[in-house]
Each structure stands twice: as C-alpha cells, then as structure tokens.
C-alpha cells in the first residue's frame, strides 16, 4: 500500500472534522494563573478557523468516520513486539512480546512504573523506532518496511508528539515553533501563519507569539508544544508524560484540553504515564510492567469530575 494511501485512509476514516471547532472557548486555559491576557474577544479570531473552508484538506463530515464502520480495523496494531537494547555484552529487553490494538477515537492511557518500557512503546507507536522483533502495523502496513523519509512523513502528518520536557526548539519563538511542522510539510506560508495564529489563540498564547521558550513558564511551553502537535491537524496525538514537569493544576488544564480534543474532535489520544491521576480521562487503560502488558481495562464512559 502506498504511503499516501495509508495517510489518506487515516484522514478519511478518522473523525477529523474542522479542527477544534468545539474548542473555541478553551475557557479552561484562561483560568491558568499566568494568562489573564488582554485578549478582547478570543472567539472572534477563532471563528476564522483556517482548518475549515473549501480548501481545507481535512474537512470531513463529522460522521464520516463512524459511518465507514471500520471501527474494528485498528489504527495501530502491535503483534508480539520485542524491543531489546544492547548494553555492552548483555542484552536488555525493554518490551517483551507486546500485543496491542489501538482504535480511532480512543483515549488510551498506558500506565506503568518508571522503567517499565512505556517510552519504548511510545517510540514504536510514533514511528520513532522500529521493533527488534514482531511487527508494528500502522493502518495495516508494517512500519519496518517503510523507509526513512516515509516514516518522517508519517510522523509529520499523522502524529502529534507531546513530550514531558516540551522539546521546543530553544532558538525559535513561540510562533516559529508552531510553524515548524508546517514548514516540513511545505505548507503555504500564509495559511501556515493563519493556522499558527489560530492554534495559539486556542491555547491562549496569542500574546506570546514572539517569545522564546526560555521566556515562557512550563505550562506555557507545554501549550506551545500542544499547538505545535496540532499544527498539521494529525489524527493521533502521542504524549509521553505530558504533565510530568508541570504542577498538578497546570497539568490538569493540559489533560482537559486533550480530553476535549478526544471528545469533540475524535482525535486518538495516547498518553504514557506513571501518574494514576490520568486514568480518569481514559477510555482504555493499558497497565504495563517489565515490558509486558499486565492488564487492559476498558471504560465506556470517560468523564473526569468537574468536566461537563
């Protein structure tokens, strides 16, 4: 299957309607202490959603995904995946025979203690690494068979990464950081700017466009990182301990935002964490220990308290 096909199938079958329409208010963010900004009417700019409109490639009927009825075909499928690291003479298996299927629209939380292999798993899901043994299927195609530039393209178009340590480019300002994934996709400069402005509006950082990461607080940095991860409107968001470096209040805003993306945009969210707090957002929890899946719990109704 050609790469473009894979990506197209992803896009069409996924519920990626006019991005973030429903997140207009993003009111929760404005509750964060450091952003009582002087924005007059955030709603107005946000209505100019550059992801919407006739030219928008991602504009799909909200129901299209569901109607396609392909819920039983997993987005990502791991079969007997091993990951071993060479440590001098000895080998260390960070993942030992993991079988997992991830479906669109899921809010998956991978929960496990430190060193259990969560990040290793995350890297495989995000096409940042290839398994030592076993297969990672992305929409039914084996990622081990794709070449470097194809993997880069998948990462660029399909997956939004959120890291524990934010991983912003320190020499680029807020806007440039958000623009970067669009630059890699050679998005038209004007549209890219509109999208960046829109996303920064949503995460409440319109007034920090020209600040360098070093001039932002941890929470603000992670919001920039979220805006960046959403820039290409990817169907999947992968987050590795996204709240690990944040205080619980700021962390909660980030999580509720991701929750909103999942609920209202149908984005597939995969969060890897050791923090039990996060389970309340999950539709499914994968418990991992010593590189093996211990158990999987499913929740039909994920609804954190306080969220309406």
């Amino acid at each position: 299957m050609a790469l473009t096909e894979i990506i197209e199938i992803f896009k069409t079958k996924l519920n990626v309607s006019g991005i973030l329409n429903s997140l207009d208010k993003a009111a929760d963010f404005y509750g964060e202490s450091d952003i009582y900004s002087e924005m007059d009417d955030p709603g107005e700019t946000i209505k100019n959603n550059p992801y919407n409109g006739p030219g928008g490639a991602f504009v799909k009927n909200v129901d299209a995904g569901k109607l396609s009825g392909k819920k039983e075909v997993p987005l990502i499928k791991l079969t007997d995946v091993w990951k071993t690291y060479q440590m001098g003479e000895s080998e260390f298996a960070a993942l030992r025979g993991v079988n997992l299927e991830i479906y669109e629209g899921e809010f998956l939380v991978v929960l496990g203690p430190s060193g259990s292999g969560k990040s290793t798993l995350m890297n495989l899901l995000g096409c940042l690494d290839l398994p030592s043994k076993g297969t990672v299927f992305l929409n039914s195609s084996d990622i081990s068979e794709l070449d470097e530039s194809e993997l880069a393209r998948i990462r660029g178009q399909m997956i939004g990464f959120i890291f524990q340590s934010f991983n912003l480019i320190p020499t680029l300002n807020t806007q440039e950081n958000v623009l970067l994934p669009l630059e890699f996709l050679e998005e038209d400069a004007r549209t890219a700017r509109e999208k960046a402005a829109y996303l920064l509006e949503i995460v409440g950082l319109s007034d920090k466009k020209y600040n360098l990461p070093s001039q932002l607080s941890g929470g603000q940095r992670q919001r920039v990182a979220i805006a960046r991860s959403l820039a290409v409107n990817p169907p999947v968001i992968l987050a590795d301990e996204p709240t690990g470096n944040l205080d619980s209040k700021t962390g909660n805003y980030i999580l509720e935002f991701l929750y909103g993306l999942n609920k209202k945009e149908g984005k597939t969210i995969i969060i890897v964490t050791h923090d039990l707090e996060l389970v309340k957002y999950a539709t499914r929890i994968v418990y991992i220990r010593d590189g093996q899946i211990e158990k999987i719990e499913e929740y039909t109704q994920n609804k954190p308290e306080g969220m309406i």
Binding site: L128, A152, R155, G156, I169, P170, L180, F184, S229
Partner: peptide, 16 residues
C-alpha cells in the same frame, strides 16, 4: 542532538 530528534519527531526528513 535533542533538537534534531525533536525535528525528526515532528516530520523532518534526514535530508532536511
């Protein structure tokens, strides 16, 4: 190095 990793994660090809 870390920035290079980040750029690759968000879609940079080797060539880039």
């Amino acid at each position: 190095t870390k920035e290079i990793g980040t750029m690759k994660a968000i879609g940079a090809r080797n060539r880039d």
